[in-house]
Design a protein around this nucleic acid. Structure first.
Lengths: 130, 130, 130, 130
DNA sequence: GTGGTCTAGACCACG
DNA sequence: GTGGTCTAGACCACC
């Protein structure tokens, strides 16, 4: 796997794990691979892997059974979505809007652009689902 | 000034300087404050300030006259802005909107969030200009 | 059974066994269930169960007849309990009370907390014995 | 410094730092020694030291200024006391009470013992303050 | 100079 | 076998 140099590897891996949970690869209370297995898969030191697990456990997305391994929490999916939503609203969106503002977009321009963008995405998804 | 912990301070300051240029505070070939003055204003280490100027100079947004100071470049700016605008509309915005869509935002939710965000930015900028 | 994450499981089980001995469920020289039976009851790995027995045997609380099973020691227990009681009154309790005092508990707070705690334990044990 | 083998070193060091804050050695917004300095003092690897700081930052007891160091949070003292109180009520006290129960203390015995212990501590502290 | 991340390898308690 | 802790040493971004 390729890693983006602008973000810690352990966070990128945590994101990947979240994706796997969201995609249904690992359901609730499913055991995820051990630190060492996962470390081998991502070609990463077990310590680094451990950090990803630590991080996810701290966020209540996975939990630990001692001597056995890590497991997906039952509420994990909603927690992940909540986290992502929070990040989007608190960081991504304001950042983009500020950029638009500085580039001379008026309030109306901005809204219009979003409406247009949304319609396109909606249509795209509609097509995909057929 | 408050800094976002997720981005280098020198880049955040560079952004602020760009804003000031865009807002017309500093016109073409206008001398901008010295590293020390600016450093004092933003309560930041002069080294950090210097990095911001370095970065902007590298981007041809400001230029340097030795022994005198830094000045706003004339032509390059609008070109850079055009590029940014294009990139924003073609990449950043659709990407974000898609993300919102996948996270369950409805068209109305999305527009509402953008309106709210825009108003906040607008107000923020108003405050800053006083 | 629920386990406390801050203590080894085998020690927690050992405690439970001690409780059962104290409560009279298993009298002196009474044979206690096999490692497998007990492991099944507590839903625990037989290895872990074995560790509990090892630990208790080492403390002379139970003894082993090869090929037959584990048995409750006769004389040693009451002596051990006496020791524990002494240690509790002389060390553990004063230490905890001092801590409470330093953390701002009043005499009334402290007594109230103990009463509440005692009632909870009592109820818990009542439930368990059913 | 001597470390207790039953607890991770990084947590023991975190406790020591808390004590130093409580004792007033490091007031609010005071910079605490760097990871490397502290690591040298406690004869511990900087990574381990970092873990202590991580832990305390996560608990909002210290905060970080990038490139400068770690600083004591303003609300640190009440946070520390709160944590300790919580730990006492949730773990230490119930554990002790259970022990007392199993050792044959009645509710009245227990309360009496606590009253006696509290009075002794109170008197002790009175003497010390003169 | 500061913290932050990563690796490599070791040891341990626990199941 | 599992995770958890610790060390040693390296490299990096940032101030």
């Amino acid at each position: 796997m390729q890693f983006d140099d602008n973000m810690p590897i352990y966070l990128q891996i945590a994101d990947r794990i979240c994706e796997n949970i969201l995609s249904g690869k690992w359901g609730p209370d499913c055991r995820i691979p051990s630190v060492r297995e996962m470390g081998a898969e991502y070609q990463v030191n077990p310590n680094t892997m451990m950090r990803s697990y630590d991080y996810l456990q701290q966020k209540n997305i996975i939990y630990n059974k001692r001597g056995i391994g890590y497991f997906v929490s039952s509420g994990s999916i909603s927690l992940i979505l909540e986290n992502q939503k929070k990040k989007l609203i608190d960081n991504d969106l304001p950042q983009l809007i500020k950029k638009m503002f500085l580039l001379g977009f008026t309030r109306e321009n901005a809204i219009e652009a979003v409406e247009k963008g949304f319609d396109e995405v909606q249509e795209e998804e509609l097509v995909k689902s057929n």
